[in-house]
Each structure stands twice: as C-alpha cells, then as structure tokens.
Amino acid sequence: MRISLSGIGRVVSTLLFLWVLTGFAAAGQTVDLDSLFRQAGDLQSEGNLQGAVETLVKVPPPAPGQDGEPFVRSRMQMARIQFSLKELDKAQATCRQVLALYPDNSEAKNFLASIEQERKSRLGAFIDDCLRFLPVLLKGALMTLLLVLCTMLISPLGGLFIALGRISHFRPLTAFCWLVIWLFRGTPLLLQLFFIYYGLPALGITFRPFTAAVIGLGLNYSAYLGEIIRGAIQSVDHGQMEAAKALGMTYRQAMRRIIIPQTYKRLMPPIGNEFIALIKDTALVSTIAMVELMRSADQMFNTYFNITALILAAIIYLVFTTVFTFIFEKIEYRAGIYEHR
C-alpha cells in the first residue's frame, strides 16, 4: 500500500513537472520571437546563411487576429538571404508565402520583381557569353571541319591502296602495306602526331601544323580503312571475279568495274563509324599547335573560366556528328539501291 501510494505520488509529480515544462516552453515560443531574430542575425553575421534561414523559418504564420509583422519580416529576411545564395526559386517561393497572406504587401511584390529581373539578366549573361565565344569557336570549328574533310578525302584513297596492296600477289607490296597497318593501328594517334610534328624535325623534315595534322590523321585513318576495305573486297563472291575474267577483263578492270563497286554499300556503315570517330579525333591535333574547335574551347574556358565555352563546343561537335551520320545513312541507302527488290 505504501508502495503504491508513493508510486502514485511519483506519477503525479512527474506529470506536474512535465506540465510546467511544456508550459514554459509554450510561453517561450510565443514570447521569444525577438530572440529568434537575434539568433538569425548572429548566424547571418557569422556567415552561416543556411543556419540563419533555418532559424527564420521557425517564425510561424500569425494566428487569426495576431500581428503578422514578425512573420513578414522573417520571410523577407529569408528571401534576401536566399537571393544572395542565388537560390532564386526558393527566394521566389518565400516571397509568395507572404503574398499568400498579404496580397498587397508591396515589399514582397517589389522583391519578387527584382528576382524576375535577376533571372532575366542571367539569361542575358548566358547569351552574352555565347556571343562572345561563338565567333572564336566557329572559327575553330571551321578548322576542325577542314581537317575532317581533308582526311575524308585522303584516307579512302590511301585505304584502297593499302587494301589492294594487301591482297596483291606482289610480295614486297603486300609486306609494305602490312607494315603500314601494323604501325599505324598499333600505336596511339597522339604519339604519331607528336612524332610527325616534333620528332621528324630532328631528322630535318619540318611540317607546318596543318600539314602535320593532315598527314597524321590521313595515315592513321588510311590504315584503319585499309583493313575495312580489304575485308569488304574479300567478302564479294569469288564468282564475280571469275565472271569478270571469263568476259576477258583484266584484274584491274574487274576490280574497278565489278568488285569495288559492290563493296560500297557494305563499306558505308564501318566507314561512317570511322569518320564519326575522326571528327572527335581531330581534337588531338590541338596538341601540335593547331587551333581547332577543341583548342578554341579550351582557350575560352581558361581565359574566362566559363563553362559555357565547353557546352558550346560540345553542341558544335554534336551537330557535326549528327549531320555526318545522316549523310552516311543516305549514301548507304543509295549505294545499295540495286538490292531493293
């Protein structure tokens, strides 16, 4: 009995304590808005802006009939901090909280307008950047395009030569073509470019950057296309060569008129692939003093430390690769028109 009595007493005293405590806390909440503002001010001056926002957000919306001034003051202060943090969306939302309660609050309205202004000027800054970088980048892109076109002109011819050499019965030529393929497919393009531009002058052979770049890209891609073209030639039915010979054609005539034209369609997909890779590989020649698209973008980025330059370069590369992919698909279709029933 005594135990149970003292137990009840303990429960009662605990409840009493809790009641007093929550009572104090509730009183503190309503009373201590000032200290919240003070605390937020301190945090703000310490540079802890996030902390200040977290404190200010504790100021509750006014109950009906209560003074809304502290709420409005807290939210506007919050909006300013968020604005300074470049969190424009959040600042805007905070202003709208005020306007939801007090649609005529001019301070919130004005601030909302100035956020809008800031938004616009950001876009303006982006457009300014674009206009500043584009001329330089397009000039670089033109050089990239020139390199691509030169290599596209040279490498199929070089590739055809290498392919025909590889399947010829003239041993020295076969060996030479094998060597070229082995060398240029087996070493990095970057190394080849370095060797041609920086290495050969040591042997008394000097090239201008553009020449060196075209030679490097041309040889490298000739080697790759050589193997592709050889495969395509050898995949043409043997009967075709026999029929051509039976008509009285020479090997050369048979190749030119009968065999090689039949490789065009099956050559297009792999060659298209190579040329897409080529568009991106031209970026490597920026290492041998060529100012093309990649180099231009890099220069802009390093001068202004502005990522817009890189984004624009990426877009230009994508435009190139997309257009070329489209063209190759068209050519492939045309080249295989005789297969359509």
Binding site: G239, Q240, A243, K245, A246, L247, T250, Y251, Y338
Partner: peptide, 25 residues
C-alpha cells in the same frame, strides 16, 4: 601475259552454274 590470256578469254564465252550476274548493274 595477262593481255594474251584476256584476249583468249574474250573469244570464249562461259556460263556458270550460279550465273554470277553483276548485281550492281
């Protein structure tokens, strides 16, 4: 020589079991 062989082949027509028409023409 190839020239001689081609000249001879030109005088002899040959028809194959599998035709071997030139598909691209």
């Amino acid at each position: 020589r190839q020239q001689v062989i081609c000249g001879l082949r030109a005088e002899i027509g040959m028809v194959f079991q599998h035709f071997h028409l030139f598909p691209h023409m």
